[in-house]
Design a protein around this nucleic acid. Structure first.
Lengths: 214, 214, 214, 214
DNA sequence: GATGAATGAGGCTTCATTCAT
DNA sequence: CATGAATGAAGCCTCATTCAT
């Protein structure tokens, strides 16, 4: 269910042998590199295969098509981010709200930052495939995680808990994306990370204290 | 005039006769509709012309290509948003910070909400590369507007004023985008609007009170 | 018959009024200029009309189409060359063979040189229309003229008179064309003119003296 | 190597497998046939591919475009003619001038006659602009060859040697072209061949004997 | 008559995908 | 299994021509 995939998007072979794993990984990396170097308009299967050092035929042995390739790649990336956030929420479930919020924000941004090239590349990938389904799945998991995070605040926040979660997740994901589409990502990221955490603390604190009246 | 355009992005004919104006507007609307109905992958000149009820030749009388068409459309849209925010900042320049922040947020979101279909459509199209220049221009104007807004806070915030502005603009634009890419935009928007304002107030208040220590 | 034209190539209106004549001439000149400045691939009706300072609609009032326009232009040009040569042959019909040959050569080259731009332009025009019909007509008239020229030599040359005429006309027309397609036409032309005359005299003299044996 | 080509004119794939070679040759032949049957105006990539019995995609695997296809074809053809003439000049370098002139003329015409269809076809295509570079290269090589040929006459001819060479090469190439654009090429060619040789002998003899005075 | 907006057939080219080797 | 030659649907765009104003 998580990050569901329609039929034609499944990978063809499960890369069991070591060689296969290497090939698939090479193709993934080549995809990212082509995306970064040439942009989504020039992301062609030929080019990816070339860069990966395999023939176009081989690429099609592992993926039923371009869409599936991108789908896998994006899914892998988003799955990682989802897990990181869920993990962080779980780890910090007994901390104070402020720390829990920090944990959420940091986990998300750090997951994206782990491989900034890939992140940037994949933000652009939406020109090449329809990724709404995948993004939605990510967002749903983040919502769920955020809800868990705020479980003990539900009374205070009850009236608009859902709005708060929704809005907060939106600015975390949307704001982060904005940074990755900026020119100076490397420099901006760590500072945005701090400010986003600060903002989250302030926001959630305000919301906790006096409901929707602030 | 603002938001300069390279040569190949210039429109071809300025619609002089009444007939022409109708045609150009039909093409713009068709672009938005195709974007919404079929997504950016299926945005083709043929499809746009078809939907606009004009021949493909007519489309090319007014725009030198697909890119130019999108460029015009986006430019028009972003110009409007920029102006709305600048106007709002100016109108509220004597109000308290909180109100100024509200004004900024509301102006931005309301500008996007004026024609929600267009907004959604253009967010979808925005990965189409040549649009970056335009988005960047918008962001720069928003930064400038935000800086004006906080002019009287510059002492308090001096140490990280730039970070704050940058981060705040990022979550306003990025968060809003996130909403428009969601399914339930119409329903979510007004609530996000409130929360985003609340968040901004809380954030800027926190930042004003005790610098980077909160 | 002369430089015949099929039905769809006829001009539409006979330019009787002064204004019409001016317009037609402007279109002709524009055609030549576009051909020279932009090449035959960019020779479009729009461009010609633009350069002529008339609307595309007006162009079509005078010519039923692009092909007809070019056809008229080429026909006019070739007609002029044909007449010049015929005239020269007639004028010099009582001179010695050598002078008659000179007259032929000079008349042809001078006709082409009268408007060198037009000549060059029209040599290139064959990319844009099929001009074989017209060229053939010219060649036929030149053959006829040459035959007249050599009427009194027919005994001596009898065995291969036709070959001689044919070959001679071929090098006169073909050689001249070659010069016009060269880069340095202006400089080369007068010298080629002399050499071509010299060559013609030598050739015809040799052919006259001892038939095919030289 | 000789007859350099700009980037966009380079062929794409070097045909390695036997299958490829057949394909490329089929494309070349189809180009010639289309040129002959339909003329340069109807020379389209679609038509060529169709006639070659390959898909349009295959054509583009080997040539980056129509221009490049023509370029290759012409280059191959002209290279052959150049070499034939140079070879002939070298072989006959110790003969008398008359024989050397014959050798030049015969080598050139015979090279063109080897594949008369191709020659006709390429003469038709030759107005296609980018081919000028190639034609010029041929002319230059022919000039050089002719100069070698006349090396031992340079004193006698000194005053206008260059004009003579230039003019002679012009009528050889231009005249031959004229024949190939004629209807009755097959019949005319051998006779023109003889006359052109005769003409060359007469011309060069006249020029040798008494400079520019004949 | 003159204009120029509109038309659409048809050209050029790319690229995801298949399949014989 | 890997290869890469071949495929062709589909995209982009031009330009000769028409016709309502």
């Amino acid at each position: 269910m998580a990050l569901a995939s329609s039929d034609r998007l499944k990978t063809r072979k499960q890369p069991r042998q070591a060689r296969s794993k290497v090939t698939v990984e090479a193709i993934f990396q080549a995809t990212i590199q082509v995306l970064l170097a040439d942009g989504p308009l020039l992301l062609t299967t030929t080019r990816v295969a070339e860069r990966a050092g395999v023939s176009i035929g081989t690429l099609y042995q592992y993926f039923p098509g371009k869409e599936a390739l991108l789908h896998s790649l994006v899914a892998r990336h988003l799955e990682h981010a989802s897990q990181a956030v869920e993990e962080a929420c779980f780890q910090n479930r007994h901390e104070r709200l402020e720390r829990r919020a920090d944990a959420f924000v940091f986990a998300y941004i750090d997951a994206k930052t782990r491989d900034p090239d890939a992140s940037r590349a994949l933000y652009h990938a939406s020109t090449a495939i329809e990724i709404k389904e995948l993004s939605d799945a990510l967002i749903r998991r983040l919502h769920a995680a955020a809800r868990t995070l705020m479980a003990d605040q539900s009374e205070t926040l009850l009236e608009d808990l859902d709005d708060i979660i929704f809005s907060w997740v939106s600015i975390v994901t949307g704001g982060t994306r904005q940074i990755f589409e900026e020119d100076d990502t490397r420099n901006r990221l760590p500072r945005f990370r701090e400010q986003l955490a600060r903002m989250s603390r302030a926001y959630l604190a305000a919301a906790t204290l006096n409901g929707s009246r602030t």
